[in-house]
Write a protein that binds this DNA or RNA. Sequence first.
DNA 1: GTCTATAGCCAGATAGAC
DNA 2: GTCTATCTGGCTATAGAC
Lengths: 205, 205
Amino acid sequence: MARVPYREQMLQVRENAIVEVVNRLLATKGYDLMTVDEVAAEAGLAKASLYKHFTSKDELAGAAMVRVLELAIAHVNELLKAPDRTPVAQLQSVVRWTLQVQLAGEMPSLPAQNSKLSASLRANRKYMDRLFELSDKLGAWIEQAQKDGQVDPALPSELVLYTLFARACDPVLGMLKASGQYSDPQMIEWLVATTFRGLAPGLPS
Amino acid sequence: MARVPYREQMLQVRENAIVEVVNRLLATKGYDLMTVDEVAAEAGLAKASLYKHFTSKDELAGAAMVRVLELAIAHVNELLKAPDRTPVAQLQSVVRWTLQVQLAGEMPSLPAQNSKLSASLRANRKYMDRLFELSDKLGAWIEQAQKDGQVDPALPSELVLYTLFARACDPVLGMLKASGQYSDPQMIEWLVATTFRGLAPGLPS
DNA sequence: GTCTATAGCCAGATAGAC
DNA sequence: GTCTATCTGGCTATAGAC
């Protein structure tokens, strides 16, 4: 164990706190309504100090995305310790986890078509690394599930991957939640069921 | 036929042109990146003149949403002329239509969680009227499809409705399109198939 | 109703002292 | 690295002449 200087630890702790604030604000208000002033205020430091840690608003968003990707990867790694489960069961567990994060108000949401932010994210090496890492792990399960016939082999595996990513920010959950009529587990199971039933092979006709 | 004054017709034509510009810009850049200057420039009039027609940017967005809802309702009304088709076939046709609109780059996208704009839309009577009208028509088909057992009766009908609305702006289509490997009809059929297979009843087990 | 010109504001980013 | 104070640009919206 290399010894980490005390000051660096403090820095890390502070930056983590900032990123958590960003994450929550992105989840509740979205990128455009989140202001840097607000982030600074909630994190308890001046805006100029914030800019010493992160050089732009884009970078703040990127850090939050990296954080959630790392959480997802950690979850996947936990699942890999139970290799007796079927690939499709593993995938379902991942989707269930993303829905729980969404219900907890902790899933950051970025504007899908904001070209400036998208470009910034694509240029963010840490973000892209994590994204590929997660995609690879999920991709392996997807292809295995297709071989097993639990996911329709006629579908391109990337379609399946995109679908799972899309469910992580699916507005349906929020709309159901807003109606206030259903329990969290009930909603999650409906969404998991409809998602994977949709990806399953059709009846051999 | 009541005679409509020439000037009013011209007004109408011009406002339609404006709304189409707004629609395209909302579809390509989204609400936040769309500027009123840009709308005015592309519509070929000065910004101040634009504000004589629409009193705010919110109202512009509202008009574009009304337009697309009216197109959807018109499509549904066409389908109602073929009452021999099953309810689920009608619903599939509607989803297929929304995906085509999306592929054509004509599906306006608003920030889901922008509270200011959401509030403005909820206060927009014309928008709310159209939204309810469309929901009612789709809801009738949904409940019939559930009685017929083509859509899972165990699912709340509003979940089905929300799912269909969500597919109209599903990012999966854009991601597939970006990969450039598949034809438009192929992508649309995959999405329609996975959506409705997901909503269908499970195997009686 | 159309234009030019501008007001007013807000948010991202920075200067410079400590 | 932290702060206060400020700059800057771009955006919505409006004034006022025609």
